[in-house]
Design a protein around this nucleic acid. Structure first.
Lengths: 206, 206
DNA sequence: CCGCTTCTCCACCTTTCGATTGATGCGCCC
DNA sequence: GGGCGCATCAATCGAAAGGTGGAGAAGCGG
C-alpha cells in the first residue's frame, strides 16, 4: 500500500513515516509540505492513499490540494489527518472529496485501520469526529442557511449591522432578521455570544 | 542528552523520537501523553530536557505540567513545543518557567538547536514566535490588565454589560469604563470586534 | 392547484451599548 | 509627597442592537 504524506510539520511527517515503517503492508513513497508539491509528487509516485493535513502554512490549504488531487487521472484516496475536529472543516473536507477524516490525536491502530479502509475506498471517521457530527445532527440545531453563514462571518469580523447591510446590498432591517434566526439556531441572544459559539463550534474561519 | 517527550499525539511523539534518533548526542528516555504521567516519568528518568506540548487533551495542560516539573528537585529544562503562536500562550509558558518556545512547524535543525540550547539553559524562541512577540511589543499595544482580561473573557462568553457587572460585583458603569479601555487597547470599537480580535490573537481561552 | 415550509425582505419600538466627561480611592515608585 | 496607573462609580446622549410582527417569492408534496 503506497502512501504519500502531506503536512507542513516535519515532525509530523517523521512521525507518520516512523509509524508506518512498522507496518508490513504500508510504504511511504513521498512527502510534501505544501499543496503544489503534493500534487506534483502524487502524480509522479501514484500513491494509493494520501494523508493530508488541512493546515499547510502559506498558499493553498489541504482542501484545495485534496480537490486538485482528486482531479488527477487515476486519483489517490485522500485521508484528511488534522488536529481539530471543527464541524466546518469536516464538512468541507467531505465536500472536497476526502475519503476519511482523522484526528492526529488518534492512536496508531486507529490510524492504520483508517488508512487500510481508505485504500479500500471505505470512508473512515475518527470516533471523536463521528460523535461530533452525530451530536450536531441529533441536537436538532438546524444548519445555517448560506445567507446566514455569510452574515455570521461578517459578524465575526466585528462589523455592525449597517456595515453588513452595505456589504450584502440589503437593508439593515433584513440583516437584523437574519440575525434573529442565527441567534435562535445557535441558542444565544446576542451577537457576541453568537460569535463565541460559532468560533467554539468551528462554524467559521479564523 | 536525555530527552523526555510529552504530547498527547502519538504521531508527534513518534516523529520527535524518529528525528532525535538521528542525532548522536540525544536520546529519548521516556514519553507521556498527559501531565500526571509526565511528572511521574520525569522524576524517574531524570531527563535533561522535557519537550512539552501545551495542549494535552483532558486534564491539566502543558502549563500546569511545566510548573509541576520545575517544582521537582533537580528539575529538567522545559522546552515548550506547540502548534500555535498565540501571544497569551507564549507569555504564560514563559511565566510558568519554560526555557524555550518552539513551533511544531519548525525545521528539524531548528528543533535540534533549540534542544541543545535548552540543555545549556539558554532560552530559545522560534523565529516566528520571536517576531510575533516583537511585533506585539513594538506595536505599542499595552497589555491588558488583569481586570480587563477578566472582563474580556466574560465578554467572549457573550454576556451583556449588566451580567458582567453582576458576576464581578461592580456597577455597570465600571464595566463600561473597562470596556472602553479594552477597545482602545485592541484597536476596535465594539464588543464583537473585541472578541474577534481576542480570539485571533490568542488572548483568551476557547 | 393549493397549502406548507423556507428564505428573503421590511417597519416600528424598546433596550442596550458606546462615547464623553468627570470624579474618588488606592497602591507604587522615585 | 506628588505623580502615575489602576479600579471604581456617575450622568448624559446619540447610535446601535434586539424583539415583534408582517409580507412577498420560491420550492415541494399532496
Amino acid at each position: 500500500m503506497r502512501l504519500y504524506l502531506v503536512d507542513d510539520h516535519p515532525v509530523v511527517r517523521a512521525g507518520l513515516a516512523a509509524l508506518v515503517d512498522g507496518e508490513a503492508d504500508m510504504e511511504v513513497v513521498g512527502e510534501a509540505d505544501n499543496a503544489d508539491a503534493a500534487v506534483r509528487g502524487a502524480r509522479e509516485t501514484a500513491p494509493d492513499v494520501v494523508l493530508m493535513d488541512l493546515q499547510l502554512g502559506d498558499g493553498p490549504g489541504g482542501l484545495e490540494a485534496t480537490a486538485a488531487l482528486l482531479a488527477l487521472p487515476d486519483p489517490p484516496r485522500v485521508l484528511v489527518l488534522t488536529t481539530y475536529e471543527s464541524d466546518a472543516d469536516v464538512r468541507r473536507a467531505v465536500e472536497a472529496g476526502a475519503t476519511g477524516y482523522l484526528l492526529k490525536a488518534c492512536p496508531p491502530e486507529e490510524l492504520f485501520a483508517a488508512i487500510r479502509a481508505a485504500a479500500r475506498g471505505e470512508s473512515a471517521l475518527s470516533p471523536k469526529v463521528a460523535a461530533r457530527v452525530m451530536d450536531q445532527v441529533r441536537s436538532g440545531r438546524p444548519a445555517l442557511t448560506a445567507r446566514e453563514s455569510e452574515i455570521l462571518s461578517l459578524l465575526a469580523e466585528g462589523l455592525g449591522n449597517k456595515q453588513i447591510a452595505q456589504r450584502l446590498y440589503v437593508t439593515e432591517a433584513t440583516v437584523k432578521t437574519h440575525l434573529v434566526h442565527i441567534f435562535a439556531k445557535l441558542g444565544v441572544d446576542n451577537r457576541t455570544a453568537a460569535v463565541a459559539t460559532a468560533v467554539q463550534q468551528g462554524l467559521i474561519r479564523h
